[in-house]
Amino acid sequence: MHFAFTDDQKMFRDTVREVLQRECAPEVVRATWEGRPEGVRAVWGTLAETGVIGMTASEDAGGMAMSELDLVLPLEETGYAALPGPIVDTVAVGIPLLEAAGTDAQKERWLGPAVVGEARIVVSFEDQAVVPHAASADVLIAQRGGAAYCIPVAEVSVSPEQSVDRARELGRVAFEVGAQYRMREDVDAAALFALGRERAALATAAQLIGISRRMLDMAVQYAKDREQFGKPIGAQQAIKHRLANALIEQEFARPPVYRAAWSVATSARDAGIDVSLAKIYAGQAARFVAKEALQVHGAIGYTIECDLHMWMKRAWALAAAHGDAAYHRERVGRHIL
C-alpha cells in the first residue's frame, strides 16, 4: 500500500500550475465569457507544448502514453485556473477513444493535430445532445445507436445554448448518422464509451477539486484582507469555522478522486464504484465550498465583478455533469445494498 504521487507526477503538476498561472489569469476566463476566446487558444497551445494535451496519446502518436493517474493532478490545475475549453473531452476521453476506435484515416486526420494542440476534440455520449465547447472544437466523437462516429465539426450543426457558466460555450449538436463517419466496427464501442464515461466523470471530479481549492484560496485571502470592527473578518470564529469546514470537505474529496484515478488506470475491480465516490465527494465539496466562499465574501461575492462567480458557476455545472450525486449514489447503492 502506497498512497502518494511520484515526484515526477508532482513536478509535472507544478509545471502545469505555472503555465496556467502565467497564461490563464482570471481575465482570460472572463474574456471567454465575453466572447473573446483568443487568450484561451494561446493557453491551449502552450499546454500542448508542455505535453499536457498529448499526455494520453501513445508514443507512436507523439504522446506520452500516460494514464489517469498522471492526468489527475494536471486536470486539478485546470480546474484551479477555470481553464475554458474541452480539455476533459480532448485529453481524458477523446484521444483514447480516437486511438482505440478510429479508422486509419480518422487517426491520420485528427490524432496528430490533437496531440500538438491544433485540433480540439469534443465527445457526445449516447443521448447527450448538448456538448460544451462544441462550436469551437474541430472534431466530434459521438455514440449514436450504440455505434461510434467521428465527425468534423464543420459538418455538424451546432446551435448555441447558454450555460450559467458562459465559458462552457454549450452547443446543441446534430449530424447525419452517415457511414462515412463510422469509427471501426471491429471494436466494442459500447465498452469503449462506457470507459469513456468513467474517464469523463473522473476527470471532471479532478477539476472540481481544483475549483474548490481556488474558491477556498479566494475566500481565505478575502478573510485576511477585509477588515470590519477594526480587524480582519477572518479573526472572527464564525468565519474561521466556515472556512475550516470548507477545507475539511475539500481535503476529504481528494482521496476518493486519487483512488479512482488509480483504479481506472489499473483497471481495478469495481473501478466504476470508485469513480462514483470520486464524483460525489468532489461535486459535494465544490458546491459546499462555493456557498461558504460566497458567504465569506459577502455582497461583493454576489456580483459578477468579483471573479468568484466564474468558479462557482463552473462548480455548479461540473458537479452535475457526467452523473450528478443522485446518479452516482444510486450506482453505489446497487453495489453495496
Binding site: 481565505v220 478573510a223 485576511k224 480587524k231 480582519p232 477572518g234 479573526a235 470564529q237 468565519i239 474561521k240 469555522h241 472556512l243 475550516a244 469546514n245 477545507l247 475539511i248
Partner: peptide, 16 residues
C-alpha cells in the same frame, strides 16, 4: 470547535 480553530489558524493561516 477547538479543532476548527486549529484548522483555521494553523492550516489556513487566519489571524488569531
Amino acid at each position: 470547535e477547538i479543532q476548527r480553530n486549529i484548522i483555521a489558524e494553523r492550516v489556513l493561516g487566519l489571524p488569531r
